[in-house]
């Protein structure tokens, strides 16, 4: 696989939010405004790249039995770093993201990439994978956040879209800012991406249908057990 492919696969084909449906919690919680989406996406991308690089470097030293706690410690370190940076230099973003900033630690996209990619690939590929996934996450957040902000508040990045003269007559639909609207918009965007990517409903279910199966540990295990049982049957 070329390095370029490691980067671009996160944008659409394996988009962490819209295709593999990871990181739903921050996606639904902070996409009430497009600017939040950028802040969250940038912070998560930073953590994703750094943790991918660090974990890729450390992959030989981390014992398999304690890999998950080790990954979390590495990720938590970078999250602490980015939240201190944000608090110091862009307090507005820090306040807007609130509890969801420290919660990046347990964002399944970051842990998922550490487990599925960084722990098996070299540093450069891991960095590009992190960047691609992070930007894919940011783009998805931006799409959902823009739709929700435009329909729900009548603004985009805080700029009012409804002319002042018409503000009495045209009211934005508040429901798009509420959780129900978040789920609805997310569903519509996923459907749209599936349509654009021309994805058919998977004929196979379970692991065989997963876009991450190539790089997944559990599939290897499952396949090897299948092979083992076949061998035993042959005996």
């Amino acid at each position: 696989m070329s390095y370029l492919k490691e980067f671009t696969k996160g944008l659409v084909k394996e988009n962490p939010t819209l295709v593999t449906l990871l990181g739903m919690c921050p996606t639904l919680a902070i996409t009430t405004m497009a600017s939040n989406a950028i802040g969250m996406g940038a912070a998560a991308t930073f953590v994703l790249i750094c943790s991918n690089v660090a974990i890729s470097l450390l992959k030989k030293f981390i014992p398999k039995q304690v890999r998950l706690p080790s990954y979390i410690v590495v990720i938590a370190g970078f999250v602490t770093l980015i939240s201190l940076i944000l608090q110091a230099f862009v307090p507005a973003v820090y306040d807007a993201l609130g509890i969801y900033l420290p919660l990046i630690t347990v964002n399944c996209i970051i842990l998922g990439r550490a487990e599925m990619f960084a722990s098996k690939n070299n540093v450069a590929a891991s960095a590009l994978d992190g960047a691609g996934m992070g930007i894919g996450f940011t783009l998805a957040l931006l799409a959902v956040g823009s739709i929700r902000e435009i329909l729900g508040s009548g603004t985009w990045f805080g700029l009012p879209l409804i002319p002042e003269a018409a503000q009495e007559a045209i009211k934005p639909m508040t429901i798009f800012v509420l959780p129900a609207g978040g789920f609805f918009v997310l569903g519509c965007v996923i459907a749209l991406v599936n349509k654009i990517a021309n994805r058919k409903p998977p004929e196979a279910t379970g692991c065989a249908a997963c876009p991450n199966r190539e790089s997944c540990i559990s599939v290897e295990k499952a396949e090897s057990t299948v092979e083992n049982t076949k061998k035993e049957e042959n005996k």
Partner: peptide
């Protein structure tokens, strides 16, 4: 309910 949530005033 959708209208109620969206346009509480009206």
């Amino acid at each position: 309910i959708v209208l109620m949530m969206s346009f509480a005033g009206a």
